[in-house]
Design a protein around this nucleic acid. Structure first.
Length: 681
RNA sequence: GGGGCCGUAGCUCAAUCGGUUAGAGCAGCAAACUCAUAAUUUGUUGGUUACAGGUUCGAGUCCUGUCGGCCCUACCA
């Protein structure tokens, strides 16, 4: 087999949050593929980096009162630790905020300029004056201009479905600062990607660069029409790289992020004395990207266009996978299925998740479901029950004698498993890990049946048949080793332990072709721990608690409340303490609540102030509360208000509430422990 | 609103170009065995291929529609 030079990347995780089990689908998938290629003897290198630029990082750094650089350095350390914990082995893990990346961005940028693909256009956007930043649509909320529904996002209305721009909103509010943004115009730089339309038609539709469903998606959705110019710059302030020939403008994060793949390679080359051009400017080198389906667009249109223009290698293949669901649903914070990598590692062996994902992953972009019951059952049954069982049921019988001097007659079992090598390798190569796992587990089934038929436990009792026993165990252990070799891209730790047990490290795929004979066998010790249901429960429990803790922390830090309410209803004149004590506020219990049919806004409430003291009160809260939900609750009322005759009866007080009206009426409640009749001081 | 992908056994998935009686694994049920981490082995139940039409000698597969799920997008595409 000729040695291939293969450069592999996984998507760059954003430096704004922790790695969770959803991210890990991709990194595990990629790591398995890389380990497989290395095991096959190819020159394969795996590069990744943190994606560090953009508005979100800038805002978060501000909120946390530190520099972007400190923030992203912290997050990068966490990411690296999480990946290491899952045995995900990068050849280099960089950052998009590096000098190498800046340099490469400029190189590609110059190429785009040279090809005359860059144009300048005016873009008008809302601007948050307090936060000093332009606002993407999703950072603006306001009242729908058509149906007047409040609290709608900047691009469309949930209620009536109409679309508009954020500037059309009746009263736009920045979700960052809760202030009213203003309209500002800035000039942006665009890449005229339509010039490369012909190239993209060909690249996406021909060959095996993309999965067929992806090629269809692009053809139907983008390539049928002229491609729109790509807005590639953001005006200051923006955390990123300033565009050298356009001061005050920064490259949009999606420009410099994929270039991070190249920059990470360059950093590695500089560290290891490798020739960069061999990796990115040599058509013999295969570049493989692994990404999730959400970022298809960037990687299959703009990215090849950028690479093509700048003269870098085009991707040999973009491997696109689906999303993770847990127990059939999106990861849920409240159900504890939003599990961070570090939380998982507190309770479970990374190998379990690696194996489970492998057994589920196919070459297509279907979503992958982590069914927690199946996870426990499948990992235990396959890995402990079938695979490791082969070693644990035979190793101790040959611990003293070692393996038979010559590999014994096994009825063709080893040869059969050896002959499956190509099929299993083809499945790995095609990212059909699910198929590979099935194929491998079928070998384990055969091997277990062999042991069962040979009944070593009977031979053990017969002094005269010890040689036979040694042969059977030699066969069983060799079949086990063969299976572990095939599994080693998925289970590197098991692979290492097997190498130790049999005194022969697993380093190459083709070791599965030759059985070991006449070698010593070490004392068997557990290679894999069975998953206990309670470990999984403890993990989801911890995930739930983390989310709660994070939420209360977030709530506490979000005290940058808007001044809108105060503006709406300005402060009254000063009053004295004597004025204040004139108003007798009391805790009261609503003992009865009725709708007043003739009134649009009123509910009739009967309040108890304790004992026999009752008040009949009409409250203008009909639009916000149902009578049934009010009965029994405590409220605050003004108890010495002069009774007022109304059309429906006499109102003998007033319940206290805030809010502008309509749905937004909020009754005041005392804290736990207050009892009706108590005065509010 | 526009578009994409998907729907096969309780669960997770196969099924070549449209080709015979739709297959596996796990779970379930029954049994055997006891070396092994309550592991293993044998047997077995289970499907109107979401639904309704159509094309065809023949449809899980192709076409149309309906329902359901997931996702992308709506001038940052």
């Amino acid at each position: 087999m000729t040695q291939r030079r293969i450069l592999v990347t996984a998507a760059l995780p954003y430096a704004n949050g922790d790695i969770h089990i959803g991210h890990l689908v991709e990194y595990i998938q990629t790591d398995i593929w890389v380990r497989f290629q290395k095991l096959r003897g190819h020159a394969c290198r795996f590069f990744c980096a943190d994606d560090t630029h953009g508005t979100a990082i800038m805002i978060r750094a501000r909120q946390e009162g530190r520099s972007e650089e400190t923030l992203i350095a912290d997050v990068q350390q966490k990411h690296i630790a999480d990946f290491a914990g899952f045995n995900i082995e990068f050849d280099h893990y960089g950052s998009t905020n590096s000098e190498q990346n800046r340099k490469l961005c400029y190189e590609i940028w110059e190429a785009l300029r040279k090809a005359d693909l860059v144009v300048e256009k005016e873009v008008t956007q809302l601007f948050d004056v307090q936060e000093n930043t332009f606002l993407a649509d999703r950072f603006v909320k306001g009242t729908c201009p058509k149906c007047k529904a409040p609290d709608q996002y900047g691009d469309n209305c949930d209620k009536c479905g109409s679309t508009y721009t954020p500037a059309d909103l009746a009263d736009p509010i920045s979700t960052l600062s809760n202030t009213t943004p203003e309209l500002r115009t800035a000039s942006h730089l665009f890449v005229r990607i339509e010039d490369l339309h012909g190239f993209l038609d060909e690249w996406t539709q021909s060959g095996a660069h993309l999965q067929s469903e992806v090629a269809n998606y692009l053809k139907g959705h983008f390539l049928g029409d002229p491609l729109r110019d790509w807005d590639i710059s953001r005006p200051a302030p923006y955390f990123g790289f300033e565009i050298p020939d356009s001061p005050g403008n920064y490259w949009y994060v999606w420009f410099d992020a994929p270039i991070g793949y190249i920059a990470s390679t360059l950093e590695w080359c500089e560290k290891n004395g490798e020739d960069f051009d061999q990796w990115w400017k040599n058509p013999e080198t295969e570049v493989h990207h692994f990404i999730g389906k959400d970022i298809t667009y960037f990687h299959t249109l703009f990215w090849p266009a950028m690479l093509k223009t700048a003269g870098f290698n085009l991707p040999e293949k973009v491997h696109i996978h689906g999303f993770l669901t847990v127990d059939g649903e999106k990861m849920s914070k409240s159900k504890g299925t939003f599990v961070k990598a570090s939380t998982y590692l507190n309770h479970l062996d990374p190998a379990c998740l690696r194996y489970y994902y492998a057994s589920k992953l196919g070459p297509r972009l279907d979503d992958l479901d982590l069914n927690l019951d199946e996870f426990i059952q499948k990992v235990n049954s396959d890995l402990v029950g079938k695979v490791v069982n082969l070693a644990s049921r035979s190793a101790k019988f040959v611990a003293n004698t070692g393996l038979s001097a010559a590999y014994p007659e096994d009825g063709g079992l080893f040869a059969h498993a050896a002959s499956r090598s190509d099929a299993i390798a083809a499945a790995y190569e095609a990212c059909d890990y699910n198929g590979a796992m099935r194929e491998i587990l079928a070998l384990a089934d055969r091997a277990n049946k062999y042991v069962e038929d040979q009944k070593p436990w009977e031979l053990r009792k017969d002094e005269s048949r010890q040689a036979e026993l040694q042969n059977i165990c030699s066969i069983s252990l060799n079949l086990f080793r063969q299976i572990v070799i095939y599994l080693s891209p998925v289970l590197p730790k098991l692979s290492d332990l097997t190498g130790e047990l049999l005194n022969d490290p697993i380093t190459n795929w083709d070791q599965a072709q030759t059985p070991l004979a006449g070698t010593a066998v070490n004392k068997f010790q557990h290679m894999f721990k069975r998953i206990e249901e309670k470990q999984v429960q403890a993990m989801t429990e911890e995930a739930r608690e983390e989310v709660e803790a994070a939420e209360s922390e977030a709530a506490a830090s979000q005290w940058n409340d808007s001044g809108a309410a105060l503006e709406q209803e300005p402060m009254s004149e000063e009053c004295t303490i004597d004025d204040f004590v004139k108003v007798d506020l009391r805790v009261a219990r609503i003992v009865e609540a009725n709708s007043v049919p003739e009134a649009d806004k009123l509910l009739q409430l009967t309040l108890s102030l304790g004992g026999d003291e009752r008040r009949n009160v009409f409250a203008g809260i009909k639009s916000a509360y149902d009578p049934e939900e009010l009965v029994g609750r405590l409220v605050i009322c003004c108890a010495n208000l002069k009774p007022r005759k109304m059309r429906f009866g006499t109102s003998e007080g007033m319940v206290l509430a805030s809010g502008p009206g309509g749905k937004d009426v909020f009754l005041l409640s005392p804290d736990e422990g207050a009892v009706p009749g108590q005065r509010v001081h």
